[in-house]
């Protein structure tokens, strides 16, 4: 059943009917840029480790409509945890070494399909679980990601959706009044 999503996604991207095409790239954190600036944004992780983790994050929740800047807070969250807990730092460091050793060349240089194979091979590991677990909140709780995926977030400050499209769906008939009375 999931295969249906692939063609649907492509349909949406090409038809332009999804919000995915909206460009709202904010200013990139300095650590995403090459060069010494990276180090300044990281508390403890070495730049190559952070770069590899970023690629791992992209492979865990791969969204063509998201940019590195959307994944960066996830890596920053891991970095902060590593800074507070040496056990996490070594878990991440060792994990990245495992990724780089898996196919004889750096993980970041592998095709996405190969990266996914490598990750499937370690998905029950503590390292993978730590990174994935962090991403659920760090990625899908990120307001910049909401904007890209079309979630509108808080509604109270805008008066809710009563006058802003709670029932604006127009590709199906409106239910009869006994099932769905008109708003007061």
């Amino acid at each position: 059943m999931l295969h249906a999503y692939l063609s649907r996604r492509q349909f949406l991207l090409h038809s332009g009917s999804a919000v995915a095409g909206v460009a709202v790239l904010g200013s990139a954190p300095a650590f995403l840029l090459p060069g010494p600036a990276w180090a300044g944004e990281l508390k403890t992780l070495a730049q190559p480790v952070a770069t590899t983790l970023l690629q791992m994050c992209r492979a865990i929740f791969p969204h063509a409509e998201l940019d590195d800047v959307h994944y960066a807070p996830w890596v920053q969250g891991l970095d902060a945890e590593a800074a507070a807990d040496p056990a996490v730092a070594s878990l991440l460091g060792d994990g990245v070494r495992t990724l780089d050793a898996a196919r004889g060349k750096p993980f970041v240089d592998l095709e996405m399909s190969t990266q996914l194979e490598v990750l499937r091979g370690i998905e029950s590991s503590a390292f993978f679980q730590k990174v994935r677990g962090k991403g659920v909140v760090a990625l899908y709780g990120n307001k910049a990601v909401w904007a890209r995926l079309g979630y509108e977030g808080a509604s109270w400050d805008k008066g809710g959706y009563l006058h802003r499209g709670f029932n604006d769906l127009d590709w199906l008939p409106d239910p009869p009044e006994e099932a769905s009375p008109k708003p007061a």
Binding site: L2, Y5, L6, R8, R9, L12, A18, V19, A20, A59, I60, F61, P62, H63, E65, L116, L119, R120, E123, R132, G135, Y140, L149, G150, Y151
Partner: peptide, 17 residues
């Protein structure tokens, strides 16, 4: 829960639909 990878991300990408 525990989901990840392209299939999972695709479902999330289709959130508005």
């Amino acid at each position: 829960p525990g989901g990840w990878g392209p299939d999972f991300a695709r479902m999330m990408s289709l959130y508005t639909h």
